[in-house]
């Protein structure tokens, strides 16, 4: 057992899978250049020393190309892990993800598989509008993609390994404030959770959520950074006698719907917290599922806490106002009592 940050856990996961399986390789911008960053958040730092520059493959700034190359390699016997420097750049490769990767197995009648992994950092971190968005909901809306959102070091490594071994295209969203990246790539305001990660080989199954805090009065569902915002809110609420249960779905597609429903049947209240902006978002989907399948267990209207319906602003006061704060989570819960 070792204590690791999420960036370290992801790095070890990649390292172990590349040792285990010669078809696994990484590609992306600035991931292996000697003297470079090891990816924007240091996840691949040092891996080219062990695996060389053919398997830690630096690419041109060509996001369509990165996605297309990963798809073509995956369809012909390789298991690529593509590094997207900032999640926002996924929009540049949208055709390859939405029209190609997601549909290839389906439109070939199940004769072709696309076992690729795409890792993308999300979250607003004082970089303005184009290096800040939380994009999960765009991809959970595309049948054919699996979408993961690990929030702990243990899950990051275990889910990454499951993703690499999966026969489908898997997107892994990682939050910039959770990586624990060090040195010049460390982030202001980061939480950098450090967690215990087993030394032996293990995986976290895709499609299983986790209860992060047990409670009886309200269910708070968060993902990535908002799991921690929810936990902080829960501690505050406990001081006032409200015991919140905090659920981290860990994988968004497929979703562990039953875990959420079971919790809501127990607590009778649901608050969904996400960093994406509100309208037509992931939180709306979770709310709809609960409204459709556990309506008669609800004691109060479902509440969603999300970023505002604006692009992510730059200046710290505006950014803080835009994001779903602990205070907004507390207020949402209290409004249900």
């Amino acid at each position: 057992m070792a204590l690791m940050t999420i960036a370290e856990a992801l790095r070890e996961g990649i390292r172990e899978e590349m040792r285990r399986d010669p078809t696994v390789f990484c590609l992306g911008e600035d991931i292996g250049v000697p003297g470079g960053f090891g990816g924007a958040f240091t996840v691949t730092l040092g891996l080219s020393d062990e695996f060389g520059h053919n398997r830690i493959l630096d690419t041109p700034i060509s996001e369509i190309g990165i996605a297309g190359v990963a798809i073509g390699a995956a369809m012909t016997g390789m298991r690529p892990i593509a590094d997207v420097q900032y999640g926002d750049f996924l929009f540049c490769m949208m055709d390859q993800l939405a029209n190609q990767a997601a549909k290839m197995t389906y439109m070939s009648g199940g004769t072709v598989k696309v076992p690729l992994v795409m890792r993308a950092p999300v979250g607003s971190t004082r970089r303005g509008s184009q290096h800040a968005q939380s994009l999960e909901a765009f991809f959970t809306h595309i049948p054919g993609l699996k979408v993961l959102a690990p929030s702990t070091a243990y899950d990051a490594k275990g889910l990454l390994k499951s993703a690499i071994r999966d026969e489908n295209p898997v997107l892994i969203f990682e939050h910039k404030l959770l990586y624990g990246s060090k040195g010049g790539r460390s982030e202001k305001g980061a939480l950098s959770p450090i967690g215990e990660v087993p030394d032996e080989d293990y995986t976290v199954p895709i499609g299983k959520g986790a209860i992060r805090r047990v409670g009886k009065d309200v269910t708070i569902v968060g993902k990535l950074l908002t799991v921690y915002r929810a936990l902080e809110a829960a501690e505050e609420l406990a001081k006032e006698g409200i015991e919140a249960e905090v659920i981290d779905p860990r994988t968004l597609i497929p979703l562990d719907k039953e875990l959420i429903l079971e919790s809501v049947r127990k607590t009778g209240r649901l608050v969904v917290v996400e960093e994406d902006n509100l309208t037509h978002g992931w939180g709306a989907e979770i709310a709809a599922i609960v409204a459709e399948e556990a309506f008669f267990y609800l004691d109060a209207p479902i509440k969603r806490v999300a970023s505002l319906d604006t692009p992510p602003p730059f200046a710290p006061p505006m950014e803080a106002y835009y994001l779903p704060s602990v205070e907004r989570v507390i207020a949402a819960v209290k409004s249900q009592f």
């Binding site: 297309g68 190359v69 073509g72 390699a73 995956a74 012909t76």
Partner: peptide, 17 residues
């Protein structure tokens, strides 16, 4: 045009294998 980068990926795979 979307097949071109996928072809490049298949060629990378052929080279790697």
């Amino acid at each position: 045009g979307a097949n071109a980068p996928i072809a490049t990926g298949a060629a990378l795979s052929a080279k790697m294998r």
